[in-house]
Design a binder for these strands. Structure first.
Lengths: 256, 256
DNA sequence: TTTCTACATTTGGTCAACCAAAAATTGGTC
DNA sequence: GACCAATTTTTGGTTGACCAAATGTAGAAA
């Protein structure tokens, strides 16, 4: 942002004419693909790779970093917050921020990838979803409690009701699947599903996957899965879930 | 924070004595388990559940929220940033923040879980890791390019070198596994592994899993896996990876 | 010399004020 | 009445300043 300001001012001074600034902004918009936060993350990464920052080291204070990068401290805080979210650094109040116990090599790879974690393709998304879903269903069949059954029944009813009412129920569908993950008693697995669910919904919205002829089949499949979970038939639920997700996967392959 | 201040002031006024404030702070520290950001997220959630906020709606301006919650705007911004990270809201500069296309039901479940995404248990972690790793290895065997092989060889060498040198190489170990995920060409899968890797390393550090007698076996297993990937033997690599991770899984079960 | 206390500094946490872009409003014109 | 342009208001973006806790330091007492 600072760069853009300076560049704009410079060009305005240089040209000495009144030009519609819209054009110029448009011209430079592609330069600004890198948000200030990403910029700082990249800088910190270079600090680590250059050996100035080792694992366990306390990194410079937010003020120093802000001054060094010629940028507001808020940006530095945001960047640190983001790195902390990924477990790369750990910040202690009134004490400082330290690099987590990772080695340099691992850190280097991690930070690089954090920046490009956003752009995913639908095929990978579906592929991963299938993996997680099947495992969740199998775990659910293994470990479900009686409370889980009640919860699953409720979610399935909500799904069917919404579907009969509006003709679509993407959220309720996914919520049912989430309940399955919950019944699987694996918090990490559930968390990961939580992470990819928004992406799935986004893709659903853009691709308009839901068409009416598959609706009735979907309902049957859901109930079938629930039945198998109740019966604790691990093998059967695996096959059923695979079959259930097959349509989505096929659709995605077709539309790409 | 505001609440704490007020409460403290109130008690100080009421008691009318000079008491060491350390004790009081300690006394109330358990109340403050809920950070201001979580508090706001919870509030926004109640706004949604009470029907005052529907999907697609523009939520109140940051200033209004800050005033309503009697809290600094920074906290509101942080909360919104966090919600945006999970894809629950979308904020447009100089325009406003809107609730993403999710339905109320899904939102409710999601926001609740976002708050408790941190606390995981090691068993779930390992279980999930095994799932992701095996799939990654199988995909890698299927899709690896010649460049991937070079990259994997390099990672494996780095691992062996570090191991011979320091007697342990947790980061290099995981980095090798990450390269496998990379060769699998599934960005989502790799991203998920990136997310859980820090937790794994943390657990490793606390449990001190690495003991020397398993080291040589681990090296052999790694090379075996790489060979299978090179040969594109999906079945074999599945079994090899399963075997390789078995020790870790068994160890975790034993130590809990 | 060692240790402890009081003070000064540094730290992340928090906040209020300012900025530019976007929206809403107003006023005028056709 | 409808439409357009200028202006005002509102919005998120950004910044610097202030706060309390934590840390470092210096000096006095033992």
């Amino acid at each position: 942002m600072v760069n853009q300001k300076l560049v704009n001012q410079f060009l305005v001074d240089q040209i000495e004419h009144k030009i519609t600034p819209l054009y110029m902004l448009e011209n430079f918009s592609e330069i600004k693909v890198e948000t200030p936060v990403d910029k700082i993350i990249r800088q910190i990464r270079s600090l680590i790779t250059s050996g100035q920052l080792n694992a366990g080291d306390k990194l410079p204070s937010e003020r120093q970093l802000a001054e060094k990068f010629a940028i507001g401290r808020s940006y530095v805080r945001d960047a640190i917050r983001k790195l902390e979210f990924y477990g790369i650094v750990k910040t202690m109040p009134q004490s400082g921020t330290v690099v987590a116990g990772l080695g340099i090599t691992a850190l280097e790879g991690l930070i690089t990838d954090v920046l490009e974690i956003e752009d995913t393709d639908f095929a990978s998304l579906v592929e991963t979803r299938v993996l997680l879903e099947i495992k969740s269903a199998m775990l659910a069949a293994e470990r479900r409690s009686s409370d889980d059954i009640i919860s699953l029944e409720k979610a399935l009813t909500a799904y069917e009701t919404k579907l009969a009412q509006d003709g679509q129920a993407v959220e309720e569908d996914l919520l049912f699947h989430l309940k399955i993950a919950e019944a699987g008693k694996n918090k990490v697995l559930k968390s990961l599903m939580l992470i990819i669910i928004p992406d799935i919904i986004k893709s659903y919205a853009t691709l308009k996957v839901c068409n009416s002829d598959t609706v009735s089949k979907t309902i049957d499949e859901h109930r079938q899965i629930l039945d198998y979970i109740i019966q604790q038939d691990t093998e059967a639920v695996q096959k059923a879930m695979q079959l259930h997700l097959q349509d989505v996967l096929g659709f995605s392959r077709k539309s790409i």
